[in-house]
Design a protein around this nucleic acid. Structure first.
Lengths: 237, 237
DNA sequence: GGCTCTCAATAACATAAGATAGGCATCGTT
DNA sequence: AACGATGCCTATCTTATGTTATTGAGAGCC
């Protein structure tokens, strides 16, 4: 079940057997959450770090007027707020987009890693820095790109991230999002998400049906999005 | 000259005399950069951490089509990419928006802090996490808010950040941005930045002249922006 | 002195995306 | 079988914002 985690960290660094074994031991406290429920709510005080094992979750912010912005996805192998216990409270929530399983790792175990497993510690830092880099890229897409390009970009990113953890065989992967949620991600109304999606289908770029996204023409998609994967910092992929 | 740095970190934690003295020693390698020049370019490999002492800098990304997105501001007292030497290369550039002075701190000195000065180390983590939180907030503004609200929000944020480092006396502060750069920050064309600014002036919210922004009605501005400062995690301010 | 630049301001027009509404499936519940 | 909820799709109309272009003020330069 920690397979995705191993693959994800392998993008950054080579971990030896003892590191991998230690990672697996960290993931012993496995929990499940049903679709639609929160792993942690906005304004709560986090006491543990989460490692995503199966399924999709997202970070989100709810505004006073009820609008919601999804600010990131947690895919299998992703880690969540490694240093978050430094902050007093969450400035956003984390919710399950599908039924998920994750491992809860105590604060103390994280602190111990920094003393005893420097390679893992470095990988945790890497993960945090990549999260930040993705945010910068999303902000850039939102500020400088049209709906069509933004959608192409998010599809390219998710495709690549699923691929490195072995979950996008045959250019097809599980995308457990409603059009509404996709809109909350790239700042569009559901109606315009639909329009944009229809256009992509008509142009033979993607197929999306029954929560599965099939990438039909990745090169074209990358071109539309001006997609450059460097911001994901996967130096070993 | 490290006054702003002290004030900034004081938002998060109480540092004692020896911590403050150590901070000052870190800031001995002071450098200057002229407006318009880069502190570090996109794709370069960073070897040092920067501590902003005077003036404004920004993080930015340039897209293949020439568009630019500003993804963050570095104000006096801000620190830059404390852990960045984990990544192979910069995924964005850092440029000077005014003449600036900053301190360059070597990789090794940063690593030493984590061994010898845990309170400072924690403050560095805090700084990184706040950067990430600001990015989430900017993304949310970009995705869910109109131009008028976005502009109100960025003014509220900058006002507060300048205030905590003692640089916004009398609700007025130095804002060394052209309307073009402001547009690159909140995802607007210069023409629409100007329109939006005129509206704010007409409604008596702000005055902006000669690179100085005066906040005339902060309460109204906060209301328009639905501004809630919690995302800045200034627990002691 | 006139030159070029940059920046702010404004006007006229174009369009990407939002708002509203309705129809049609599917699915779980009673 | 009837029901309500949810998600997808489409059409029509509106509007926030982009595009293009012009003007004038100020700053630096030779």
């Amino acid at each position: 079940m920690t397979n995705a985690l191993h693959k994800r960290l392998a993008c950054f660094t080579e971990l030896d057997e003892s590191d991998l074994a230690h990672l697996d031991r960290l993931c012993e406290d496995v929990r499940t959450v049903k679709v639609g429920e929160d792993l942690i709510g906005e304004r709560e005080k986090p006491e543990e770090v989460f490692i995503q094992l199966e399924g999709w979750a997202c970070r989100y912010k709810i505004l006073p007027d009820g609008n919601r912005q999804i600010t990131g996805y947690l895919l299998p192998g992703d880690m969540c707020d490694v240093f978050v216990f430094i902050l007093e409270h969450m400035d956003h929530g984390i919710g399950a987009l599908s039924d998920i399983t994750y491992a809860a790792v105590s604060k103390q175990k994280i602190i111990d890693i920094f003393d005893s497993h420097p390679r893992i510690a470095k990988a945790l830092w890497w993960s945090t820095l990549v999260d930040e880099s993705i945010l910068r890229q999303w902000l850039t897409n939102m500020g400088q790109r049209f709906a069509y390009e933004r959608m192409a970009h998010i599809f390219c990113e998710l495709w690549l991230r699923m691929k490195v953890v072995g979950l996008a065989a045959g250019d097809e992967f599980h995308l457990p999002l409603t059009q509404n949620q996709l809109g909350d991600t790239i700042g569009l109304t559901p109606v315009h998400v639909n329009r944009t999606l229809q256009r992509m289908r008509n142009e033979g770029l993607v197929e999306l049906d029954n929560k599965r996204l099939k990438i039909c023409d990745i090169e074209k998609l990358k071109e539309i999005a001006q997609f450059n994967s460097e911001y994901l910092h996967m130096k070993r992929c």
